[in-house]
């Protein structure tokens, strides 16, 4: 009797399971469809796109659109391709992520282990900065960059992104360090370690998971940012996102859709790479921060 019920349980389970997988597969295909369109069309000559089916695989495979997007396509007025702007983005995103992560970690360390009067208020204010829309700060920020002589430069963009990144970085690291035993800090104090030695030798070595979360978060946000790039960058400090827009919106000549697709994939590659490399730490670190905080 019990055997029979077990059997049916397995059978219904199998049917339900098949159904679940089928639905999941459908959704996966649905979500992958845009990427397929981009990839397929980036590998076709232009004539195949204008003359035929967007969904079809290329008949005449070519990597010419990729080469063009990378090094020869018309961006605004210069036929430079996306290459210099890719470099601009790297020069902007790496220091911005590094600086905002270090400052976030320092803030988290101070707010949990060197508590002072009014620290929760300060933390609350910093949190508030996570929710200020970008548009609000555009004009004051432009004025400030001008006063500091950083207008239209990569360091200027780095500064803007660092300022915006500190709020989230502080939130992540504070919640992570809140679960870190204070007795360790006291032991290190008695051992004679100073403020930065404790940070460097005791706290940072165990901050791996939350640092990865913060790095992925900041990297994606800063790399994908368009508004600040469009507002505060000059021609020679323009990030990838803005250059891509210029590539697609170039009014001269025919619209080279295959080159546009290749350029868009190029612009998305670094964030994709970061997710693939560090993605599993992302979920792990997020859980750690949220549950223990």
């Amino acid at each position: 009797m019990s055997h029979a019920t077990q059997d049916t349980a397995v059978r219904t389970g199998r049917i339900a399971r098949t159904f679940i997988y089928l639905v999941l597969l459908l959704f996966a295909l649905f979500y992958l469809l845009p990427f397929f369109v981009m990839l397929a069309n980036s590998l076709k000559p232009l004539s195949e796109i204008t003359g035929g089916n967007m969904m079809a695989l290329p008949q005449d495979w070519t990597i010419a659109p990729w080469l063009s997007a990378w090094s020869t396509a018309q961006i605004g007025v210069e036929p430079t391709g996306l290459r210099p702007y890719f470099l601009n983005s790297i020069l902007m995103v790496v220091p911005a992520v590094a600086i905002s992560t270090v400052i976030g970690a320092l803030n988290g360390y101070i707010l949990t282990k060197w508590r002072f009067r009014g620290d929760t208020v300060i933390f609350g204010l910093m949190l508030f900065s996570c929710f200020i829309p970008f548009q609000i700060v555009l004009i004051p920020m432009a004025r400030m960059l001008g006063l500091m002589g950083l207008a239209g430069s990569t360091p200027g963009l780095v500064l803007v992104h660092v300022v915006y990144g500190i709020g989230f970085g502080t939130l992540y690291f504070r919640n992570y360090y809140a679960a870190f035993p204070t007795e360790l800090v006291r032991a290190a104090q008695i051992d004679g370690a100073g403020f930065f030695q404790i940070f460097w030798r005791i706290m940072l070595p165990v901050s791996g998971p939350i640092a990865v979360v913060n790095i992925i978060w900041q990297f994606t946000n800063i790399w994908n940012d368009f508004l600040f790039g469009a507002s505060f960058a000059d021609l020679d400090s323009m990030p990838m996102t803005v250059a891509l827009n210029n590539l697609v919106n170039s009014s001269t000549g025919v619209k080279e859709y295959n080159v546009h697709f290749a350029g868009a994939i190029l612009a998305a590659l670094p964030t994709l790479l970061v997710y693939i490399v560090a993605g599993r730490y992302f979920v792990r670190g997020l859980m750690a921060g949220s549950v223990k905080g």
Binding site: L184, R186, A187, A188, I190
Partner: peptide, 27 residues
């Protein structure tokens, strides 16, 4: 605290998790 020439053993032991026993002891 570090200049009082004292040493303390904590309830939770407070060993530095990222260091080996030898490094913990000589830190």
């Amino acid at each position: 605290p570090s200049k009082r020439n004292i040493a303390m053993v904590f309830q939770s032991y407070a060993l530095y998790p990222n260091m080996s026993v030898a490094q913990n002891m000589t830190f």
